[in-house]
Every structure is written in C-alpha cells, then in structure tokens.
C-alpha cells in the first residue's frame, strides 16, 4: 500500500473545513454565512449582499468579503467570484496544505479520480484531530459541509441560493480527488481533495488544481430615481 500524506496540525477552522470539503467557493460561503449570522451582512430576497457597518472581529476572509462589498450591495456570486481569488483563500489553501491536505499533483494519471465519501473524509479528519472544534450541527460546520442550502434560516438560505441562481452563468466548482492508488506515488490510502478554482477573471489553483474549474458572472441592476429631499 502506498504511503499517504500525514495529516497533522491544529484543527481546521470552519472556513478551512469548507475549503477542504468543497474548495474555495465553499470557504467563501462559510465566511458569508458567518457574517450573516452575526448581523455584519444583510441579504435581500433577491440575493443582494450588503454590509451593515459592524466589522468587528473578522477573519481575514470575512474582512475580504466586507471589503468587496464596500458601501454598496452586490449579488452573492459577484462577491464569491471576487473573494475566492483573493489572498485570504490562498492563505487558507496554504494552511490546509501544511496539514497534509491538498497536495500538488505530480505526473498524470489516466485513472479517473474517485471522490471519497464525505464520511470517509470526515473520519480521516477526525482521526487526525483536524475537525473544527465546534458542536456538531453548528451553522458554520453545516454550511462548510453542505453549502448555502444548509443555512439554518430557510428564508436566508433561499436568498443565498436565489442570488446564486440569478447570476448569469452562476458559480460552479468541481474538484478532483485522489483515492487509493489513483494518484501518483505517495498518495496511497489518503482520500485527499485536490481543490482548485479558476474563473473568468484569472486562474487559481491549489494543490495541483487538477479537475477543477470555477467561473461566474453576474448581472446587477439597481433602481434609480430622484435624489434628495424625497
């Protein structure tokens, strides 16, 4: 049996966990969900995000989300597209690599990567002490695992998904995984995600970037009218 990468280090935070579970977009989704839960962001039914001016105690990724919004409102996919290419996500990618997650793919295999089951991945993370230190079912964890649709407030979840669905082209990511023996030597029994994302605005790759793509575009409109004194 080939030797797999050693999973080690401190537990993942929810953004890192989201990244491991589903890639850069999911990490940003976790940040957006956490900001919404704390009231630092607001979302409209149409999926327009805006900041509420309460930027306290933000993670680096959360800060990038708030910065991307500025004082205007933007559709969810536009924010995700902007931030998922940013420095904070790259830092997350490095941080998970340092724990043995997401290695650079070397060589080329004709064998189709087979994603591990979620439970297998979670078991491996748990076995290595990398699962986030949060109660099972905590919002960041469920969003990290299952995306916006798992946000516990159904109306907000609907708005988050409405924003994604309404964007022209939407956002999508797919991920390549190595399974036992599928990857190059050294990947062995570890079911390790190779995550990467590229968008129309420029490529982004982590851990080899194989089999992964992400693109989004969005349309945004706003009402107008007369200003002042109304």
């Amino acid at each position: 049996m080939a030797r797999g990468p050693r999973l080690t280090g401190k537990p993942l935070n929810p953004e890192e966990y989201g990244f491991v579970m589903s890639g850069p977009v999911r990490a940003v989704e976790v940040a957006i969900a956490a900001l919404l839960e704390r009231g630092a962001l607001r979302i409209s039914r149409e999926g327009e995000l805006s900041a509420t001016g309460q930027p306290h105690g933000l993670s680096r990724l959360e800060a990038e989300v708030v910065e991307a919004l500025g004082t205007s409102s933007r559709p969810v996919p536009k924010v995700i597209r902007t931030v998922s290419d940013g420095a904070a996500v790259r830092a997350i990618a490095v941080a998970v690599q340092e724990r043995g997650l997401g290695r650079r793919r070397r060589g080329f295999s004709l064998r189709r990567p087979v994603p591990p089951s979620r439970s297998m991945l979670e078991d491996r993370l748990a076995g290595a002490g990398l699962m986030p230190l949060m109660a099972v079912g905590a919002m960041p964890l469920v969003v990290a695992a299952d995306g916006f649709g798992a946000y516990p407030d159904e109306e907000v979840a609907g708005a988050l998904l409405a924003g994604k669905a309404s964007a022209v082209g939407g956002v999508s990511c797919s991920y390549a995984w190595s399974d036992a023996g599928a990857g190059p030597a050294g990947y062995g029994p570890d079911h390790v995600p190779y995550v990467g994302c590229s968008s129309t605005g420029g490529g982004f790759g982590v851990g080899g970037g194989g089999g992964s793509s992400c693109g989004s575009s969005s349309g945004c409109g706003g009402g107008g009218g007369c200003g002042g004194g109304s």
């Binding site: 979302i43 409209s44 039914r45 327009e48 805006s50 409102s73 907000v156 708005a159």
Partner: peptide
C-alpha cells in the same frame, strides 16, 4: 420605506 436591500429586515 420598503427598499429591496432591506426587505427581509
């Protein structure tokens, strides 16, 4: 004043 940005609010 109802505004779409704060509709859920």
């Amino acid at each position: 004043g109802w505004r779409s940005a704060i509709d859920l609010t």
